[in-house]
Amino acid sequence: MKWVVVRFPGSLDDDDVVYALREVLAQDVSIVWHRTESLGAADCVVLPGGFSYGDYLRCGAIARFSPIMKSVKRFATEGGLVLGICNGFQILCEAHLLPGALTRNESLSFVCEMATVRVENRQTPFTNQLEIGDVLRLPIKHGEGRYVAPEHELRQLEERGQVLLRYVANDESFGAGSSPNGSMHAIAGVANERFNVFGLMPHPEHAVEALLGSTDGRKIFESITASRT
């Protein structure tokens, strides 16, 4: 399958996503500059982490208006798979491709650590190689990752199974304090209602080789490839 990684001014993890996909998972990947208007023949589009447009105004608020985002929206509307990691997640929320918003961490501190997340739904193109209850170790590094949505929306997300990943404490328990950033319902990753757009704060592309401390991120990418073969 063909992967397209969008590079915004201020993207940081674009090359890491390319490395993970091309070198580790032997996938066909290309990078497109945000001023491009065409995604070409993509099967999955990745919006990578970083600080697009310097996080001016709000994280992801300006990147949302990049020329490429029109194509990303169309691609998503047509059912194409879109994965947003960290800043990519923030951009997807600002672009209304995902519900909710990401705000300043409750601690006001930038968190940079290995997070533990639990898989909450496996009937999706992003998690089909995992089991419900599987625990993944994935790095997080963000200052604005606290997931917020109105209470009624949270309820709907939970009912429909749109919460794909939830932070758990190191002992795999879940509850107040299990989220490193104060996210509501300890949400680490959510999908849209159609389950073809997924955003997450943890970085699967930084967890693809034992040398990096975890290979759990591979499962996310492998799920995506499995869903399209």
Partner: peptide, 8 residues
């Protein structure tokens, strides 16, 4: 559309 995010 831009200056505020009505969600938050």
């Amino acid at each position: 559309q831009l200056l505020a995010n009505p969600v938050i």
